[in-house]
């Protein structure tokens, strides 16, 4: 049941964050702490205000502005990044809480294991399908798609998955599955139909 295949691997059925049960180094009462994390495979050591979200750390401190702030409250998905291989809303993750984790943002997708160093296949598919217009939701859509593909491969169901489907195999990604699984990423330009096509291109 346990697997922890690293930042970009197949997440398996039960996924744990890296075992890291240690108190923060900062003294009691401090309102900031040093954190160490990996961002797009580069080590980052930085002192953060405990209120700082991972999104604001990326955008305002690390100059990684690819991750977007659309709502700042987990309501739009534009801030989606991968933390230890799983897609999450970086606007609701405190940076101090991801101490020790491996973060992949849109800027790092091209260097993940499915990619060729130039573009990740999902990035290429988005270009080919014109799966965006203004581009502001796009990094979140891309990171979400990468995380979602791994989830389906590992057999995680969605609410539209046939309940009788065996729990130990991958979930076939119909258009309906893709739509449901990508629903945490809003796109006001309405590129959804092309996004589904782009994801299907990568599936097949």
């Amino acid at each position: 049941m346990e697997s922890n295949k690293g930042p970009h691997g197949d997440p398996g059925t039960t996924i744990r964050y890296a075992p890291w049960p240690r108190p923060a180094d900062s003294p009691p009462g401090a309102t900031g702490s040093p954190v160490t994390l990996s961002v797009n495979d580069a080590p980052v050591e930085v002192e953060v205000d405990h209120r700082t979200t991972l999104l604001d750390l990326l955008r305002e401190r690390l100059a990684l502005t690819g991750s977007k702030k659309g709502c700042d409250h987990g309501q739009c998905g534009a801030c989606t990044v991968l933390v230890d291989g799983r897609r999450v809303n970086s606007c609701l993750l405190l940076a101090v809480a991801v101490d020790g984790c491996a973060v992949v943002t849109v800027e790092g997708l091209a260097r993940t294991e499915d990619a060729d160093g130039d573009l990740h296949p999902i990035q290429r598919a988005f270009l080919e399908r014109d799966a965006f217009q203004c581009g502001y939701c796009t990094p979140g859509q891309l990171c979400s798609a990468v995380g979602m593909l791994a989830e389906a491969r590992s057999g995680q169901p969605s609410v539209v998955t046939d309940p009788d489907l065996a729990a130990d195999g991958p979930v076939p990604l119909t258009d309906e599955e893709i739509r449901e699984r990508m629903s945490g990423n809003l796109c006001r330009c309405g590129a959804y139909p092309h996004i589904v096509e782009a994801v299907q291109d990568v599936v097949s």
């Binding site: 987990g74 609410v159 309940p163 729990a167």
Partner: peptide, 23 residues
């Protein structure tokens, strides 16, 4: 959970988004 408590699995999957459920 999927085998014995489908109602629990379905309820969780009916809520929020894939990202939020991961958190």
């Amino acid at each position: 959970i999927r085998e014995r408590y489908p109602v629990v699995s379905q309820a969780v999957l009916s809520g929020a988004s894939g990202q939020l459920r991961n958190m």
